[in-house]
Amino acid sequence: MTDAAIDAAHGGHEEHHDVKPVRKTAMWVFLGSEFVFFGAMISTFLLYRNTTNGGPGSEIFDIPFTSASSFVLLMSSLTMVLAHNAFENKDMRQTRVWLVATAFLGATFLAGQIFEFTEFIHEGLTLPTSPFGSSFYMLTGFHGIHVAVGVMLLTAMAILSLSGRLYDDRGLNVELVGLYWHFVDIIWIVIFTVVYLLQV
């Protein structure tokens, strides 16, 4: 006891409970590294945004449509944080409602992206059309994969909550998936600004 007391008086300013939630630490580490992942793709896009190789360029973007789907994804962050809030208050029914709502909004965003891709392909912009096309599809495609993974995790959690197996001490928990989901949203905020709005 005395030893520890002395220790606290000297160098013991580091409290071990300060950073105890190990999963959350690892999650923030992962999100930090994701910036480099998306940063590389965004800068590739910026490098090639005018390299259209004779194919369509940024004029084919349908800003009103993409704005609507951006708004949907933005609002899914609201439903996600409400799910987290309900989970903290141990209200499983509310948690489930908001989880399902978030997954639904995410799926809507994905549907919008599939529609957008189909339109662009009809208008002649494909992966092999130009460096512009390659970097556009890669960037938005990888973001879409992130959204799809998130929808899957949200759905799984909603199903688990039915049988009361949604714990906060497992890898799959509301807070961690929430962090991931918000991160996917902020990346879209950047993509929406840099890819769509700046092109006009």
């Binding site: 590294s33 992942f37 940063g39 793709m41 590739t44 992966l127 092999p128 059309t129 130009s130 390659s134």
Partner: peptide
Amino acid sequence: PSVAIGLFQLFLDRNYGAL
């Protein structure tokens, strides 16, 4: 993550005609 993106790009160039 930086080389991961580079490797994906190479892979897409090689297999899907990306440019």
